[in-house]
Structures are given as structure tokens and as C-alpha cells.
Amino acid sequence: MMQSPKKYLAHKGWHQTAVIALIGGIYVFGSWALNFNSVDGFIAVPKAFAWLGIYFRPTAHSMEYLPKIWQKLIQTVLLAISSTVVAAIVSIFVALLGSKVTGINSFVQTIVRGVASFFRNIPLVAWSMILLFSFKQSDFTGFLALLLMSIGYLIRAFMEIIEDEASETMLALKATGASYFQVIFQAVLPQILPSILSWILYMIENNVRDATLVGILTGTGIGFIFDIYYKSFRFDAAGMTVLAIIIVVIALETISNQIRRVIL
């Protein structure tokens, strides 16, 4: 592919302009189709923050909501953790069966891959609603919704970790005559453990945020209590809830980062 430099640069410039025009076009078309006015949108932002500053600010009065909020938040974090841990236990077995490195055969691998991406792509809303129908308004519903969602994500993540990090050592131990389970426990698991843990921590953070959505839909945990305050116009209490969520999520993120720094 010999091109003159001048031609190449012109071509590149043209290409860039085309991409920018395409994206701009999509934006304009999208705004029109959705009836979204960019100017109104941008004006709304400062307005929203001014409004937040006045009405969403927790007052001395909203302190009385704190114990209740706190209790729900702890409950939500516990649900996020337990659903992630159970999902991780299930996923590690499935990932071992389904990864290209440790998997049984290509048929099982294909099945596992398909099932995992199917699970991952079913919207959380759908899980929440159909579980709500059978399990009613209970913590268990929230737990199951988060569990099913997490399983889909973790299976794929774990399979990628195994394939990236363990294939070479797997081969070396196989060559010494070690048996399948010896290789798994002596080479694969020790090698991938830190990455696995890192993903579990990430999934916990994510599940705390997702639990809010599940909570609004299924009437559990922190999402439920926010929804109640929000719908009954007790905005100071709603603001307090948001503040509590921010603190907990950032605390979790900070702790996770510290743990990662030590283990990786």
C-alpha cells in the first residue's frame, strides 16, 4: 500500500472529518427523535444543583431519619456482599468447566459461554420483577436478583482471567504428570486468586449501586427507603439517603483499592 505522504494525510484528515460528522449527525438526529433540547438540558443542570442546594440539603431535623437509613444501608451492603460471594462460588466452578484452558470439551465451553452471556444480558429490571412476582417483597428477592446478574458477569470475567493468567503454568504442570485436580489447585487457583478477589471487590461496589435500583423496584433496602422519602416529598431525608450512599460507596471503593494494592 504505497501512498504519497500528502495523500495519506489528506485521507486521514478526510476520515477524521467524516467520523466527527457522523457522530454529530447521530447526536442531532437522536436529540430530534427523542425530543431532547440540548440548550434546555444544559440550562437545567445549574438549576438542578441550585435546587438541590436548597431542598435536598439535610437539616438538623432530618437527623432523626439517620438510624433508619443507616440500618437499610447496612442491610443493602450485606446483600451486595453475600450475593457477590455466592455468585463467585458458583461462577468459579462454571468458569473452570467452561474456560478454554481448563474446560472439559468444546461443547461444554460453548454452552457455558452462551449461558453466561444470556444471563448477563437479561436486564436487571426483568430479574427484579419476575422474582418479585414469585418471592414477594422480601430481602430474598433482592438477593436473588443481584445473584443472577452477578453470575453472568463473573463467569465471563473468571473465564478470561483463567485464560489470560493460567494457561502457561497449566501446561507446565500437566507436563510433570500432575493430575487435573492437582493442576487446578496447585497452579490455576493460586495464580488467579488475586485477580478473582479484585473482581469480587469490584462486583460488590457495583452491586451496592445496583441494589438501589433493585430496591426501588422490589421494595427492599436503601432503594425502597429513598423511594418512600422521594415520593412523599421529604427531600431532606432523600438527600440524607443519597449522602449516606455516597459515603458508603466511596468507603468501599477506597478499601478495595487498598486491598488491591496489597494483593496484586
Partner: peptide, 13 residues
């Protein structure tokens, strides 16, 4: 740290 759904609810007020 604030979930998307809460952002949407805040702006919808």
C-alpha cells in the same frame, strides 16, 4: 457513587 437511577430521579424533579 450516586446510582444512575437516583440521578435520573433528582433531575426529574
Amino acid at each position: 457513587a450516586i446510582p444512575t437511577i437516583i440521578w435520573a430521579l433528582i433531575f426529574s424533579i
